[in-house]
Nucleic acid binder design. Sequence first.
DNA 1: CCGAGTTTGTGCGCTCGTTCACAAGGCGTA
DNA 2: TACGCCTTGTGAACGAGCGCACAAACTCGG
Lengths: 214, 214
Amino acid sequence: MARLPVYLRALVGLAEAAESTVSSDGLAVASGVNSAKVRKDLSHLGSYGTRGVGYDVQFLIYQISRELGLNEDRAVAIVGLGNLGHALANYGGFAQRGFRVAALVDTDRRRVGEQVGGVGISHLDDLTDLVRANDISIGVIATPAGAAQDVCDRLVAAGVTSILNFAPVVLTVPDGVDLRKVDLSIELQILSFHEQRKAGVSSLRSATAAGAPG
Amino acid sequence: MARLPVYLRALVGLAEAAESTVSSDGLAVASGVNSAKVRKDLSHLGSYGTRGVGYDVQFLIYQISRELGLNEDRAVAIVGLGNLGHALANYGGFAQRGFRVAALVDTDRRRVGEQVGGVGISHLDDLTDLVRANDISIGVIATPAGAAQDVCDRLVAAGVTSILNFAPVVLTVPDGVDLRKVDLSIELQILSFHEQRKAGVSSLRSATAAGAPG
DNA sequence: CCGAGTTTGTGCGCTCGTTCACAAGGCGTA
DNA sequence: TACGCCTTGTGAACGAGCGCACAAACTCGG
């Protein structure tokens, strides 16, 4: 379930505030969702709550972390060290959640050897060795669109089974490989769409209907 | 509809390949979705296809762009010029899709005046003036989590009606303001979750059942 | 022990999006 | 003009997810 990480973040915040238990409603408010949804989601993990009391914050953090596999050591490779790749390599949130940036890879040989966030940049040709040596299961693609599918294929061939794609292109992966995408400009376009709706759709519609070529 | 930007991207690719028309199935493959979904989505914009032929690529690009409001001049403010903010400010994809990065804002006065991607950094206190002077309707929050809600409130107060949040925190906005969020570590956690499922859930489940405290 | 108050876990109906399947309609050829 | 052939547009069935509402169960005070 895609909301578990949100709950986890909220729970960590509650733990820092020295809260020992939390009700489904409290967690719902902190996570920005409905309380029934929280209860239903958590019940799918097992019955970890106590009626009349709520959920034990620490225990829930442990259970959700386990469910998400955050107790395991998850090594990540970042491919493409442009602006976005640099930002990702320096992003503290990954290490904080238990992810280890084990490899940085680029095609530009002039960048090889450069240190970013304490990790040296390697060449794309060494990807397979790096993946196997560091037991990397997750690959992050931060390359230009044109290179993304090739990089993706190489990651899969090297044994990576989960890919996070930032390149603005639709990638294809074989069965058994999970693929998620984040397209920054698409997010902006969706906001633009809503702006458009807010700014008088009716007038625009009628004008278009009158002036449409056919 | 959240898929329109994906269609648009695919259509631009087809246009560059000098394709004049495209069938719903062709566009579906290029966008990674189902062809029936494509037809239903496009029919909501109006009947712009020709039976037996398909859709006119250029005309569809125009119609989707119009629907998304990409013909209008959309000015964007980026708040928080850390690693991520820098990457966003330098990201060419925004300008390419018709967004204009009109203001960069940070709280660190030592950064004020610095140029990033051709735009100077201003101080957060000048946000309202910048928003009004540049007619900014979209704000991007790339600050640490602790500062995000304050920045969000300031953006709203200044007149921004759409916000894209990269900070790992749940923001609250008044009605009429659109909010979207991108949490990079959540994406990784979702991948980790699927890795967990792939790596023998059954064995882990039984071990947990046997060793569970109660 | 008992009753009042609180909170979990879940059955049920509802809504929304997806997908199937097919009729409606345009194009090319003879 | 008449006839296949192709593709759109859409009605209808299906399924997933959401939220209400309530019974079950626990705590606390007397």
